[in-house]
Amino acid sequence: NITNLCPFDEVFNATRFASVYAWNRKRISNCVADYSVLYNFAPFFAFKCYGVSPTKLNDLCFTNVYADSFVIRGNEVSQIAPGQTGNIADYNYKLPDDFTGCVIAWNSNKLDSKVGGNYNYLYRLFRKSNLKPFERDISTEIYQAGNKPCNGVAGFNCYFPLRSYGFRPTYGVGHQPYRVVVLSFELLHAPATVCGPKKST
């Protein structure tokens, strides 16, 4: 009989979020998941679920829940969905086509923008091939755009693969920082350890 609540607040209220190319993952297990707390949290810009209804989450049990978190621009949030393409979905964070879970995003301009620009948040701009679902690539190898080998030196046709967002408070909404948490639900042939409040007695 599990009684402790799942530590969703640790994920959602973290002081610093990860850059999207180096997205953070927390495994959540052996706890009671009260999703209504999240669902009623006012400032969400997006709360979209795939393969599961957000209002039914509290009735369900899962083997594991993974909480992935990172920061992207407002106009990139739409790429955090199954079957998407674009710089983020291709080179930074890719969801599987059969994704079961929820994508939760909110504007973090007050936290993550600075006058003069916040350059701490990076994304991958160049990559030889697209990421596989949930693949994480933190390499900083110089990207070779031409035929000539770069030998690890940036220059003509040789690019550092990461780019900084440089968030400023005055940017338009599409270019403002958004914090994103992706909850993915794993249902294995194993005992369920993460259940909603109704199922955990």
Rank of each mutant, 00 (worst) to 15 (best):
I2Q: 14
I2W: 12
T3G: 11
T3H: 11
N4C: 09
N4W: 08
L5A: 13
C6G: 05
C6D: 07
C6M: 05
P7A: 12
P7R: 14
P7L: 08
D9L: 14
D9I: 14
E10H: 08
V11H: 04
V11N: 03
F12P: 03
N13K: 09
N13W: 05
N13V: 05
N13G: 09
A14Y: 05
R16Y: 12
R16K: 15
R16P: 09
F17S: 04
F17I: 05
F17V: 07
F17L: 05
A18D: 09
S19Q: 05
S19A: 06
S19K: 04
Y21H: 10
A22D: 11
W23T: 01
W23P: 04
N24D: 14
R25T: 05
R25K: 03
R25S: 04
R25G: 00
K26N: 08
K26S: 08
K26E: 07
R27L: 11
I28W: 15
I28Q: 02
N30I: 05
N30W: 08
N30S: 09
C31I: 05
V32I: 14
V32H: 11
V32S: 09
V32M: 10
A33M: 13
A33E: 06
A33Q: 08
D34M: 06
Y35D: 07
Y35A: 09
S36M: 08
V37E: 12
V37R: 15
L38N: 03
L38R: 04
Y39W: 13
N40P: 09
N40H: 13
F41A: 10
F41Y: 15
F41I: 11
A42G: 15
A42N: 09
A42H: 11
P43L: 06
P43I: 05
P43F: 08
F44W: 11
F44E: 13
F45T: 15
A46D: 11
A46Q: 15
F47C: 08
F47M: 13
C49R: 03
Y50P: 00
G51I: 04
G51K: 12
V52M: 09
V52H: 07
V52Q: 05
S53H: 12
P54T: 10
T55H: 14
K56E: 14
L57T: 06
L57R: 06
D59M: 09
C61R: 13
T63C: 08
N64V: 11
V65L: 12
Y66A: 07
A67Q: 04
D68P: 02
D68N: 03
S69I: 03
S69Y: 07
F70S: 01
V71F: 01
V71C: 06
V71M: 04
I72V: 15
R73P: 10
G74A: 05
N75I: 07
N75P: 05
N75Q: 15
N75T: 11
E76W: 03
V77R: 09
S78T: 10
Q79L: 04
Q79V: 03
I80L: 07
A81Y: 04
A81E: 08
A81F: 04
G83S: 08
G83K: 13
G83R: 11
T85L: 07
G86V: 02
G86C: 01
G86Y: 02
N87R: 14
I88P: 01
I88A: 04
I88W: 02
A89E: 00
D90K: 13
D90A: 09
Y91A: 08
Y91N: 08
Y91F: 14
N92K: 03
N92T: 01
N92R: 03
K94S: 07
L95K: 02
P96S: 07
D97K: 14
D97F: 09
D98V: 09
F99C: 00
T100R: 13
T100G: 05
G101C: 01
G101N: 00
C102S: 02
C102L: 06
V103K: 01
V103R: 03
V103P: 00
I104Y: 13
I104C: 09
A105V: 12
A105H: 09
W106S: 05
W106M: 10
W106V: 09
N109A: 07
N109D: 05
K110D: 10
L111P: 07
D112E: 03
S113D: 00
S113R: 01
S113W: 02
S113N: 02
V115Q: 12
V115S: 10
G116H: 10
N118A: 07
N118W: 04
Y119A: 08
N120K: 13
N120L: 10
N120T: 07
Y123N: 15
L125Y: 06
L125D: 01
L125T: 07
F126M: 10
F126H: 06
R127S: 06
K128T: 12
S129R: 13
S129L: 08
N130W: 07
K132N: 11
K132P: 07
P133D: 06
F134D: 07
E135L: 05
E135G: 09
D137H: 04
D137F: 04
D137W: 04
I138A: 11
I138K: 11
I138T: 14
S139D: 13
T140W: 09
T140P: 10
E141F: 09
E141L: 08
E141S: 11
Y143P: 00
Y143V: 06
Q144H: 06
A145T: 06
N147D: 07
N147Y: 06
K148W: 10
K148E: 12
K148P: 05
C150F: 01
N151V: 10
G152A: 11
G152K: 11
V153F: 12
F156G: 05
N157R: 03
N157F: 02
N157Y: 02
C158Q: 02
C158D: 00
Y159W: 04
Y159N: 00
F160W: 11
P161T: 04
P161E: 03
L162S: 02
L162I: 15
L162W: 02
L162V: 15
R163N: 15
S164V: 04
S164G: 15
Y165G: 02
G166F: 03
G166R: 04
G166W: 04
F167K: 01
F167S: 00
R168W: 05
R168A: 05
R168E: 00
R168L: 01
T170A: 07
T170G: 06
T170E: 01
G172W: 02
G172N: 00
G172E: 00
V173C: 07
V173F: 13
V173D: 11
Q176H: 04
Q176K: 04
Q176S: 04
Y178L: 11
Y178D: 01
R179V: 00
V180A: 04
V180S: 01
V180W: 01
V180G: 01
V181D: 00
V181E: 00
L183D: 00
L183R: 01
S184Y: 10
F185S: 03
F185Y: 09
F185I: 08
E186C: 07
H189R: 13
H189N: 15
H189L: 10
P191K: 13
A192V: 13
T193F: 11
V194I: 11
V194A: 12
V194K: 12
V194C: 10
C195K: 11
C195M: 11
C195Q: 12
C195S: 12
G196K: 11
P197F: 15
P197H: 15
K198E: 13
K199C: 13
K199G: 14
K199P: 12
S200Y: 14
S200R: 13
S200I: 15
T201C: 13
